[in-house]
Amino acid sequence: MTDKIIDYEKLKSGGFMRQLQQGQFALRLRIVGGRVEADQLRVLADAAEKYGDGHIHITSRQGVEIPFVNIDDVNNIGHDLVDVNLRRGTCGPRVRGVVACQGNTVCPRGLVNPQDLAQKIDEKYFAAPAPHKFKIGITGCPASCLKPQENDFGIMGGVEPKWIEDLCIICGLCQEVCRMDAIKVEDGTVYFDREKCDLCGDCIASCPTDAWENVKTGYTIFIGGKIGRKPKLGTKFVELVDEDTLFDILERTLNFYRENAKSGERIGETIDRLGIEIYKEAVLK
């Protein structure tokens, strides 16, 4: 086949990426939050042997790709995978696969359920058109294992601690466990500096008398992160919003991006050009 009759853009939007080798494609799959079921893995292994060269590539964003798929098999491979609900991924100027840690489904430190949120975001926005690539990453706590700051739209679980004087025995443990130097236990009382607090909840989790209470669980959002040639961490612009608000902000963010981006601009670059206040005004209504 010649390049003229292959619609590379269409293949790309359906997760097929042209390889260095003529006529060979890597098929990217739609994986959400790095979760793959055992039956899917078996089918993937079979498909890699049947259509590829027998190996699978694990991507930097928790994805799975089957390389060395011949152009003639592009239509066939999907049929084998669909039985176990493995769908084709995407690339190009779109909302990409959502990455997420396991959060409170597995991790003792997890404050929210990033897997569940990733599924919901994927269902609503997967492969939605955007001016350029748009990456979303969700991490369950400020330890940031899933690096939300590297994503165009990064989400981090957090909790708001509140000190309850009556329950406190002034043991000083919270001061010792706090990594942000936000708690001082002095003169028989506790001083809490909310500005320094990173909302990790270590004080709540460790307090022996439950004198630190979780008064709010929510999502902190980072905007405009990217790596690439000009790396830049996302900017934290709102703390501890609930799920409905998060979805409102995401919807408005994509609209803002589509309305304001110049050709080839990632959202961080658009915001740098226009100013973060303009963005905040548009999305935090």
């Binding site: 043991c171 443990l173 466990v177 270590d202 460790s206 307090c207």
Partner: peptide, 21 residues
């Protein structure tokens, strides 16, 4: 160490009664 021990002790239903630096 102090972070991990205090967390797991609490999770398992024990109680820290005193901490001395």
């Amino acid at each position: 160490p102090i972070r991990n021990v205090s967390r797991s002790v609490k999770d398992e239903g024990h109680r820290i009664v005193k901490l001395d630096k």
